[in-house]
Structure formats: structure tokens, C-alpha cells
């Protein structure tokens, strides 16, 4: 059973412009992202894709997008997960809010899998990644965030969010370090555990 789950946030076609608006750059970044996911799968850990689907009849959603088109409507082509990042062994959990845990089956799914550590990735760093990381921390998971696998259109938003997560709830590290650790161990240490030891 896996100890570690990589949670991807909102890797859906309609949001790829938040990773990069340049097609070649986007392709390169997705390939690099897949190197990490493949490494996770090879280490017998699990990948969980959090797919954002808004309920257009939800008053909170209507209020949030008042005057604008509501994004992430289920069934639309843009709402689909990027096919290149999804593997048959992966798990998909639908969410309707920023945090992947908010009124979803994510926590139960992770508990059923035996997961104690989550690695939060995807976009946007200062919205869904940040809230999902905080929510995971509150639920008792060890939280890691690979700094090269999280995306916001503005680099300063990513930096501020990473600083916040490092200060409160997560261990920030390059994805290569996470893979290296999982090549020698079947789990990742908690925040501050190594320093304490």
C-alpha cells in the first residue's frame, strides 16, 4: 500500500494558460511534470488528480463569479484532465472548491489507501495548492510541496504561497529531492522531523 499520494490540482485543459501561455513552454513543463509523476508511480506511490467541477446552481459559485462566466463546468472539453498526465493507475477525485478536501471523498480515499503523506502539486500555487496543503495539514497528513511542480501565472504569487506553506504547514523541496528520498524510503518525513532528530 502507498504511504504517499501526489495530489494534482486543476490540471485541466481550460486552465493550462495559467501554467504557460506559450505552447512549447507548456509542453516542456508538462513533460517535466510527468517525469515527477512517473517517478512517483515507479516508487509504488499513488497519484490523485483533483478535478475542479463547479456546480453552476451553487449560490456560492454564482456569487464568486458574478458578472463573469463560471469556469470548470462538467462535461465541457476544457474541463477534462490533461490526458498526458493521467495514468490508468491514478485516482481521480472531483472537487467543487479550492481545497481538494472540501466536501469531497478525498480524505476517505486517502485513508482507504493508507496514505499518511501528501505531495501537493498543480495550480494555482496561491489558491488550490495552498488551501489543499493547509487542509491536509489540519487533517494530520505530512505535507510536501515540490516547488517546481506548482504553478501560478505570476511568479510572485507562487513565491508568497511557498513561503506561507513553508512557514505553517509544508516541507518545500525540488521534485528531484522527493523522488530521491522515495528511492531509499517508502515515506517522507514530517515537517521539522529531521531537524528535531
Amino acid at each position: 500500500m502507498p504511504n504517499v499520494a501526489v495530489l494534482t490540482n486543476d490540471l485541466q485543459y481550460e486552465f493550462t494558460h495559467k501554467i504557460s501561455t506559450d505552447a512549447q513552454e507548456l509542453d516542456r513543463m508538462i513533460k517535466q511534470f510527468n517525469v515527477f509523476l512517473d517517478g512517483i508511480r515507479a516508487a509504488s506511490q499513488v497519484v490523485v488528480h483533483l478535478q475542479l467541477i463547479h456546480d453552476p446552481n451553487d449560490p456560492q459559485v454564482q456569487r464568486r463569479y458574478r458578472g463573469r462566466a463560471i469556469p470548470a463546468i462538467g462535461g465541457t472539453p476544457g474541463n477534462q484532465l490533461i490526458a498526458d498526465v493521467v495514468h490508468p493507475s491514478d485516482v481521480v477525485v472531483v472537487k467543487g472548491r479550492d481545497s481538494g478536501f472540501y466536501e469531497t471523498k478525498l480524505h476517505d480515499t486517502l485513508q482507504d489507501l493508507g496514505v499518511s503523506t501528501v505531495v501537493v502539486t498543480g495550480l494555482q500555487t496561491h489558491v488550490c495548492v495552498q488551501t489543499t496543503a493547509a487542509d491536509a495539514f489540519f487533517r494530520g497528513y505530512k505535507v510536501w510541496v515540490p516547488e517546481d511542480c506548482v504553478f501560478s501565472p505570476k511568479p510572485e504569487d507562487t513565491k508568497r504561497a511557498l513561503d506561507w506553506m513553508a512557514g505553517y504547514c509544508a516541507t518545500i523541496a525540488p521534485s528531484s529531492e522527493i523522488l530521491a528520498r522515495l528511492s531509499t524510503s517508502d515515506d517522507l518525513p514530517g515537517r521539522g522531523e529531521e531537524a528535531a532528530a
Binding site: 456560492q60 464568486r64 472548491r97 472540501y102 488551501t131 493547509a134 489540519f138
Partner: peptide
């Protein structure tokens, strides 16, 4: 937190 689904509402 409830409005935005931030994950703080239980804590």
C-alpha cells in the same frame, strides 16, 4: 473558509 472552500472551516 466556507464561502471559498479553503479548508479552515472545521478548525
Amino acid at each position: 473558509s466556507i464561502r471559498e472552500g479553503l479548508g479552515f472551516e472545521r478548525n
